[in-house]
Design a protein around this nucleic acid. Sequence first.
DNA 1: GTATGTACTTACGAAAGGTAAGCTGCGGGG
DNA 2: CCCCGCAGCTTACCTTTCGTAAGTACATAC
Lengths: 131, 131
Amino acid sequence: MPWPKSMKTIRIPKGNLFASDCPTRDILDDVTSRWGSLVVVILMERSYRFSELAYLIGGVSEKMLAQTLRILEEDGFVLREVHATKPPKVEYRLTPFGQELGERISALTSFVEQNAGRVMAHRAKARQGLA
Amino acid sequence: MPWPKSMKTIRIPKGNLFASDCPTRDILDDVTSRWGSLVVVILMERSYRFSELAYLIGGVSEKMLAQTLRILEEDGFVLREVHATKPPKVEYRLTPFGQELGERISALTSFVEQNAGRVMAHRAKARQGLA
DNA sequence: GTATGTACTTACGAAAGGTAAGCTGCGGGG
DNA sequence: CCCCGCAGCTTACCTTTCGTAAGTACATAC
């Protein structure tokens, strides 16, 4: 697909989010990943252990939970605390930076929760239109 | 993995986002999908045509853009207007509902853009720790 | 009649994600 | 002793999703 003429008058609206090679894109993917956002929201409440998270977040596999937590830790949103008890105990909590992020994500998730009915209704209408 | 003992005292923090069979989860996936959030943010600015979106959002394929737009339309966030000109022209814009959503998503994306430096710095430190 | 413009679809290979089993290290029951 | 269980991952394997590139339709322009 060639570059359309209407492009000549268009400027990229904001920052660099829309450039595919910008690291901003990676970070957004991390925090909006399927499990990432759920982990952040649940950690807003308090710290949790690995197995607690695995059970609270319905449908997550241990593999994906571990991967998600590792990424969020690398990005500086989550803190991993190992307690050398027997058997070992690993607690995850949000960093202050992660809490700032969590406020934004919670705003989004609670909006989605509160308006899920509207969306479901619209989906039903849209599918009637197709049939 | 069996249900751990510490679970007995835990209650699910909020709503139903954490139940794997809740439609809320699907909706969240739609709006936080790789391309979904970018489309919503860019449509906050003004309406755009298909090919314009394809060029503004770096790295998106036409296939994924079409799929993303169809989903956002079904959910009631985006409106699709076909102008029967020759050649045809299709405009996409946010519904009022989509704009409410867009405010939440923009809050998140602008936070990420503004704090990308912090994240990159933390990633670099984390990788030094490993080496 | 060949090429262009617009908005998609479709086929196919690559990559991400899910499932389930294994691993380590220690303590307790038989 | 020996094996099981607990906790927190990790690995192997397979399925689903995604990206790439080509094709479609229809009309006008060359």
